[in-house]
Design a binder for these strands. Structure first.
Lengths: 151, 151
DNA sequence: TTAAACTCGACTAAAAGTGTCAAGTATATT
DNA sequence: AATATACTTGACACTTTTAGTCGAGTTTAA
């Protein structure tokens, strides 16, 4: 129930590119240095992002990466999928192991996980890069104080 | 971004106990057999659940476990915490690594993760065991078709 | 031509997750 | 009091995933 560094690095990188939009291209080297990430590891992630079509690259001197689409057209979920981040609370494990049996309890618990999974998907699907750079928070949950939850 | 078997087994076990409420106590042995889980692994999880005060045990012949509270008083998040399931999308890793610097991009991405984390917490906090056994789905996201999301 | 910059695939080390095992302790029934 | 049932504890082993490295390329603008 946590996000891997792949997903986090990818988001930080994409936000960087979104902020640099309109200016020069951003090189992986610059980015890795600025954010304190491993150059080669970041390159790996960029391969996925480029293949997913959400960023483009130009080679040679003065080359680099830039967004392939406007920030409002890039969904967070697409960024995460591009780098192989699992976005599914029920993938594998119990609940998927014994498809033939499925006790009452297993089914009921499974519905709860599906509900959670749906929530997460909705959040990540509706949130675009533009929302992120505008510090937009999804207003959905009707809780004003989150401290209460830290029980 | 996925739930471990600990969390899943714990939920299945707790739903079982909730369904058996009013009847006899449930033994770990029965439960492990019925759900096809490892007996000793399940015992580990029950230790955590008992320590968290959400179930009680009676020893000796005809003993077993039962819920310590009414199903509507047991929150899913408490079950997950009891077995050590991490419920925090940003714990460790990037975003928490360089507290002193915090580039603009890192901060913005971090806010997004916090928003997601808050959503998940709200969902798991407001969902009780009673809701689960009543197949209640949280109505929050205004999406009617989830298939659309499987892009 | 060449240096900057991206591409690809294999590899390794560390961490987390998933259990197992053995030796107990407690207690309701007989 | 004996005993079978059932919970308790802690250490251990195995597997999978994640994180990050390495090196040998390919492309292209200056």
């Amino acid at each position: 129930m946590k996000v891997s560094t792949r997903g986090k690095y990818a988001m930080i990188a994409m936000v960087n590119l979104a902020l640099a939009r309109g200016g020069n291209m951003v090189t992986v080297k610059e980015l890795a240095a600025r954010e304190g990430m491993s150059l080669t590891y970041l390159e790996q992630l960029f391969v996925g992002l480029r293949k997913a079509g959400i960023l483009t690259s130009i080679r040679g001197p003065n080359g680099g990466f830039q967004l392939a689409l406007a920030p409002e057209e890039i969904r967070v979920i697409d960024i995460l999928k591009a780098v192989g981040e699992t976005v599914d609370s029920l993938k594998d494990g119990a609940g998927a192991r014994r498809p033939e049996s499925g006790s009452e309890a297993e089914v009921l618990a499974g519905l709860m996980w599906e509900g959670l999974s749906a929530h997460v998907h909705v959040y990540l699907h509706q949130m675009t890069l533009k929302d992120v750079i505008q510090r937009a928070q999804s207003p959905c949950p009707a809780f004003s104080s989150l401290e209460e939850l830290a029980t």
